[in-house]
Amino acid sequence: MLIITCPFCGPRDEVEFACGGEAHIARPLADHKISDADFADYLFMRDNPKGLFLERWRHSAGCRRWFNVARDTVSNEIVEIYPMGSLPVKTAAKTTYKTSWRRDTAAEKAATPSRSKAGGSK
């Protein structure tokens, strides 16, 4: 049973939260034509790493706000909690972000340039 520090409410029991799965899956923009296989990277492919994982959480039984969490799936240590639409700043979490296979996908490239949105990390 984790303690998660909601950026808006403070440290709370895990029961108040819902995990939203992998973070930083950018949604391809409609004006980019990408193949079904490339689109599947966005739609279906999800990481399940042993170790540090960047994931989205929602304070579902609290303020209902979404935020990002860098959590070690083995130790359950929470390395960093950072706002939606931003990237982690802790070295280990930054490395996890940078080295993700997703950074090289056509789906992610198709999510930029961002014309109508700020942040844009989902």
Binding site: R27, R58, W66, M84, G85, K117, A118, G119, G120, K122
Partner: peptide
Amino acid sequence: LDWMEEWLQTEWPD
């Protein structure tokens, strides 16, 4: 409601 909030907060915060 959760679904709509998710899109507003995570994909279209603008």
